[in-house]
Write a protein that binds this DNA or RNA. Sequence first.
DNA 1: CGCTTAGCACCTAGGTGAAAATCT
DNA 2: AGATTTTCACCTAGGTGCTAAGCG
Lengths: 509, 509
Amino acid sequence: MAEKRRSPCTLSVKAHAFSVEALIGSEKRRKLGEDDTRVCFLEEVTEVLELPSNGGEREERACNRASDRGSEIECVSDGSLESCDVLLESPHPEARAQRAPPVTVTVPGEEMRVDLQGSDLWKRFHEIGTEMIITKAGRRMFPAMRVKISGLDPHQLYYITMDIIPVDNKRYRYVYHSSKWMVAGNADSPVPPRVYIHPDSPASGETWMRQVISFDKLKLTNNELDDQGHIILHSMHKYQPRVHVIHKERGEELSHVRAVPQGDGTRTLSFPETTFTTVTAYQNQQITRLKIDRNPFAKGFRDSGRNRMGLEALVESYAFWRPSLRSLTFEDISGIKQGAPGPHGGVGSPHLLSSSPCSSPFQVWPLSPPDYTCSRPTHTPLHRYSNLPEPFPSPTSRGPSAYDSEGFCSMSLPPSQIVSASTPPYGLYGYAFPPSPRLIASPDKMAAASAAAANQNPFLGSSPSGTLADSLGMLSGGQQANFLFDSRTLGMAGSQSGGGASQVTTHMG
Amino acid sequence: MAEKRRSPCTLSVKAHAFSVEALIGSEKRRKLGEDDTRVCFLEEVTEVLELPSNGGEREERACNRASDRGSEIECVSDGSLESCDVLLESPHPEARAQRAPPVTVTVPGEEMRVDLQGSDLWKRFHEIGTEMIITKAGRRMFPAMRVKISGLDPHQLYYITMDIIPVDNKRYRYVYHSSKWMVAGNADSPVPPRVYIHPDSPASGETWMRQVISFDKLKLTNNELDDQGHIILHSMHKYQPRVHVIHKERGEELSHVRAVPQGDGTRTLSFPETTFTTVTAYQNQQITRLKIDRNPFAKGFRDSGRNRMGLEALVESYAFWRPSLRSLTFEDISGIKQGAPGPHGGVGSPHLLSSSPCSSPFQVWPLSPPDYTCSRPTHTPLHRYSNLPEPFPSPTSRGPSAYDSEGFCSMSLPPSQIVSASTPPYGLYGYAFPPSPRLIASPDKMAAASAAAANQNPFLGSSPSGTLADSLGMLSGGQQANFLFDSRTLGMAGSQSGGGASQVTTHMG
DNA sequence: CGCTTAGCACCTAGGTGAAAATCT
DNA sequence: AGATTTTCACCTAGGTGCTAAGCG
């Protein structure tokens, strides 16, 4: 099966050029793990920013971005064991200084909190320097943005949208020699701004809060003439995704166009760890690896997994095609290893083919953390890299935590843990959330809703799922009957739902 | 490849019991074909029915159905070459007699027309006796309901929903001996009524009219405890799908629940050829065959196709596993044939393994058309069976018309037409409509919409696709700026869009 | 015996990065 | 030489009817 692939055990041509630094990666932080949903005990951080109109460094950099409407919240809080210094980082110090109270609040006392799901994975990428492939036909993001929102008025309607704005006005190029992104000039000319409207929009606050709001259907393209509605970006630029929560005013659906996104009923949220650089082909091998290890659709490029033959068979077949097994080069080893860090360690020769570039003769620790400033628009301190030399986890151990498996270095782990890689990583990350049909942000809007028995008219009666009611606007409550979430309540709720996720709390009317 | 299937060339165990009548089928009507979208020159039929409140035979039969709200339109018009008598049929003669003018019309002069897409295929099934499988997990319908609507107010918002009501209060069983559905008692107790809300809802009339509105994501289940929002039905009962067009009143989205579906802003449409009997396993072999031949997902059960080996290889491999090739039984032949009516005729022995039960020694014409009255709630005359003995089409010819390929009898066609089956039926029927991304009823609502360049604020500016505007309710027009379609205009439009489709025109406010 | 269910092989549909080809 | 496009094998995800087993 695996032999069908033309060269399953070799790095790309660019592998000849990658640097040792790039192969090592700044791995650390191994959590008690419970996937992305593990509990966060850290205090949430509230950053309510009011960008007056135009101004500040960012405004000058961002060409096509669609900001400057409503208040913008940036959240960097983190439930992981990472240094809490990060919590106070902000890519926009000038904006943080303006920290302003929320403007007119339609529902006084209501407080909205947003958790970024999969924050840990995002940070793993961010530490390396997240890259997102863009293609003419449109390419999904991985990871995808997933948020969980609290504090909405359950009976009000909201649109939730996402856009992606430039982080600066620079163009970048990746220097293999130094494994760094370097400025390569000014940004290209603006592209048509686009917004991805979450397909469940509009929906009630109740509906939104009940589900993880996923943007995994969103696609990025570099085709400026795209007619598929994908988000158009420039390659080799840095971007920041943003989520917008837009309160739908009753009776205003067909008018007051401009008021919708600009009014106080709109909140804009961004998570600095979700910034990324657009590419048409991955530049950093670590990014490639992490994508392959975590994106289920790239499973074909993992050599671990249940369908894999054992080490012996692999070596045999490999020797069959490449008779000079004994004269394996670094490229050979890396190639084998890159995809097959899994089931071998426990049964075969864990040293010969153990699992990562780290085991290569070139393996070294970086003397200093890589400079990621190019990948972050801020002056963020690099605290997170301070504990780099921690032992790496098993590259493919598939324990209860999705974040325990990375596929990097395994040398410090006993072979038994490596063997556990043979159990496939099904259901990791959000792609296999526990099937809670109504709660998953479905592409279909779960449109078929129970119209509640006991009534001949399917449009009458209560709607257990709420979907029908949401879609048909049959909610009985109104602005007079709002649920009020205060910050204390939400803070407590954080220990139930938002573990490990970036969070933000704000007021919204 | 094909040999992997355990018994690719045998009928099911039930094959021993099927009747010759069931194998023959009432085939006829071979059109010039242009798929489902071929032009219809027949005059459209308008049937505006006002079901007063309760009354009529049907009301007594339907137990759980959610009718009796708004006016209900039944349409049986047809653009095919079928006898035009059908055009005047109605399953509800008593209702037809009442043919009433539309009730309060919000927009005077506006006339709504609905075309059933794929009407020809529906009729093919209907002639046999459509069966739909229901499962615990939910099963899609095939064919799926697809309609095209004209005459809506482009600037108003509408919900489009579908429900499925019992045709009578009977339970049925299929008698293999006579290939008929027979009444087997009274209907089972009612099930929770459910409504499938088209995922694009709500959307503007403009949006709805621009696309084929497909209900192919709808699923049927026999699980009365279903929590997936699927439509719950009883097995072995007869049902009629209905489409509802519900005008969304501005400002009423959160109240006046009952008014929404009952008011004059609601139109209910049903197409008698879409009635079906629910089953947990197909009863009539003809239905099985037609499903396999037309549903792309059942392609694995067709033995035609590009990946198929030639007849010789097929026979060889068949003989390999079943050494008694020379003593092929009818079951053997039927088995081969059932799946492989395709590439053999032109190259090998078209008589030995040619393509259908019709070529079996049992092949006969039915002396009288099968009694389908059970499958139709009406006293519809059986005109459509009058021209039964017409030559059958190529079973797998894949010409420009999806309706030219059926997989029944090929004996009257030259081998060359049969060989053409080797070109796969990709893109037939609606599953592969010409990709007009914005116009296809997408599960995603095409949420990422262009916010029109030229504006920093993505929520401002015009929306070329209309999607953003529709979703955010930013249409500038209102009730004062309605497009008016009169019946003449719509009739002309029929030659562009609704060819071969069932149509209905009504007034709607 | 009739009907239902669960597992299966076989598909469609489409998301991956690799690699080669092409563009600039 | 760098960036982009295209094609491909290999996946996920899920829709088919078949089959055998289960149920009443």
